[in-house]
Every structure is written in structure tokens, then in C-alpha cells.
Computed example of a mutant assay.
Amino acid sequence: MSLSVSLTAIPGVPDIRNGDDLAAVLGDCLVRAGLPLKRGDILCVAQKVFSKAEGCIIPLTSVTPSAEALKYAEELNKDPRKVEIVLRESTRVVRAFRRPDQNEGTMICEHRLGFISANAAVDESNFGEEDAAMVLPPDPDASCARLQQDLSHRFDAEIGVVMTDTFGRPWRLGQVNVAIGLAKVPATIREQGNTDAWGRPLQVTEPALADEIAAASGLVVRKNGKTPAVLLRGLDWQPADSRGADILRKKQEDMFR
């Protein structure tokens, strides 16, 4: 059981460009910072870094809005080209609304990967390009697996990797980092069948380990600080074959559909 952990934002990460070798870039940053990876370390890396390296940036000039996109754009006062990208990234629009105090409305969508988020995680900020939109990598788990394997080999230490993104939460203000891709890190820890401190059996307890790790990484990251990677050290965990989708609730268990 871990009684303490450390979180360190990795300094000196350069602006990532399409085609960059993330393992080489982040590995070099870790070495320069005197933080060679050790067995059991977990590296949390922002989604934007992966998307940049994998070329997941779409110039808005290349997008022709559909009739559906034009309809939503008019209702929500949004750029129809961005709406079109949101629709392409989504399997369904859960809800679209614009409050009287909003200049631009919001689309709550089910992303093709299963996540429910605003605007299907399509973003226009913090990646250094104008008149363009960024989308999630096509396979976040595969992206994490490549990084995990390369860094584990370089430092001769089995580590875990979590890809993070910032989501809002129903009925709660603000945003937190959540896990959208995993390599070796368990999505949850099943406590069912164990007992609490008084010997009572646990029936539903299942801590969301990957999201807890992702949220913790946000404590040392600043949006304007160019610190997209965080080293978490000291956590007691066991490697697992896991996927970001493992933390999604099954649709038949959705009580609000």
C-alpha cells in the first residue's frame, strides 16, 4: 500500500511537431532533468502531445460543412467547419444547447472511442496553430503502448503510461484530467469481495485508479506552462492489460439515457 507518492512535471519539453519521436523527446527530457525512469513509475502525458506527433490537426480551410453541421452552427453560433469536425468525431450528439449568457453554445457528444465530452474533444487551443482544430489520436491505447515499450526498453524498467485529457463532469463545476488511453496501468481496482476496516464485505467499491492518476497529474500542470508530461513515482500498483475504454460504464448500466 502506498502511503506517499510524488508528482513531477517534466521540464524542458519542446513544442512537439508531426512525426516527432515522443519516446526519444520525453526520454531525453527525463535524463536532462535527472529523472531516469525506474520500475513502477507512471508517466502521464497530455493528449495534445500525442495528437501533435501523430498529425491529428485539421486545417479548417479543408473542411466543407454538411447540412447537419450548418444547422447546429446556426443554433449554437459556432463555426460550421468546427461543428463538422465534431460530427465526424462523434457517434451521436447527446445534447446541444446555448444558454442566454453564452456567446457560443456547446455540443455534448459521444466520441467514436466511447467517451462523453464537450465537442467530442475537438480543440482549438494550446497547440500553436491558427484556423485549425485538433482531434484525439485514432487509437490512444496503441499510442500509449508504443511510448511505454520504447521508454521501458530505454531505461530497462517496466513503467506505465496514461494519456490524459481534460473533461468536465456532470453536476460538478470545473474540469479535471481523466485517462483516455492506457498502457499497463489498471483502469480500476476491483475491491469487491474484500473487506473494509471493520470487516464488512465490500460489494461495489471499485476505485477508478487511472482517472485518479490522471487527475493528480493536473495538480502540477499549467495550461501556459508547457509541461505536458508528469512523472508519478511511489505508487503501489500491478501492471495489467488495460484499455482506456475499460473505465467507460456499459450503456445498459446508464441510468440517465
Rank of each mutant, 00 (worst) to 15 (best):
S2W: 12
L3I: 00
S4F: 14
S6L: 07
L7H: 06
T8I: 11
T8C: 09
P11Q: 02
P11H: 00
G12P: 01
G12F: 00
V13E: 02
I16S: 05
I16C: 01
R17Y: 07
D20G: 00
D21A: 11
D21E: 10
L22K: 01
A24F: 13
L26V: 06
G27F: 10
L30Y: 09
V31C: 11
V31D: 15
R32V: 08
G34R: 09
L35S: 00
P36N: 01
L37R: 05
D41V: 10
L43D: 08
V45L: 00
S51L: 02
A53L: 03
A53M: 05
G55H: 08
C56K: 10
C56H: 06
I57M: 01
I57A: 00
I58H: 03
T61F: 10
S62T: 15
S62D: 14
V63Q: 07
V63H: 07
T64W: 04
E68S: 13
L70W: 10
L70H: 12
A73K: 04
A73F: 08
V83N: 02
I85V: 15
L87D: 00
E89A: 11
S90Y: 06
S90I: 05
S90E: 07
A96P: 09
A96R: 05
P100R: 11
P100M: 15
Q102V: 05
E104M: 15
I108W: 12
R112A: 09
L113E: 03
F115T: 09
I116A: 02
N119P: 11
N119I: 10
A121F: 08
D123L: 13
D123T: 14
E124Q: 15
E130N: 13
A132L: 08
A133Y: 04
A133E: 06
M134H: 07
L136F: 07
P137Q: 02
P137I: 00
P137G: 02
A142W: 05
C144T: 03
C144Q: 03
C144S: 02
C144L: 02
A145E: 13
R146P: 02
R146V: 12
Q148A: 15
Q149E: 15
Q149L: 10
L151T: 04
L151E: 09
H153K: 15
H153T: 15
R154G: 07
F155V: 03
D156P: 09
D156I: 11
I159S: 08
I159W: 05
I159P: 10
V162A: 08
V162Y: 06
M163Y: 06
M163H: 09
T164H: 10
T164D: 09
T164G: 10
D165C: 13
F167N: 12
R172G: 01
Q175S: 13
A183I: 12
A187V: 04
A187F: 02
T188D: 03
T188M: 01
I189M: 11
R190E: 14
N194F: 14
D196P: 03
Q203M: 14
E206W: 01
P207L: 09
L209R: 08
L209P: 08
A214R: 04
A214E: 01
A215V: 04
R222Q: 14
K226C: 05
T227Q: 01
P228R: 00
A229T: 02
A229S: 07
V230L: 06
L231W: 05
R233H: 15
L235G: 07
D236F: 11
Q238P: 06
S242F: 03
G244C: 12
L248W: 12
R249P: 04
K250H: 13
Q252G: 14
E253I: 00
M255T: 03
F256C: 06
R257L: 14
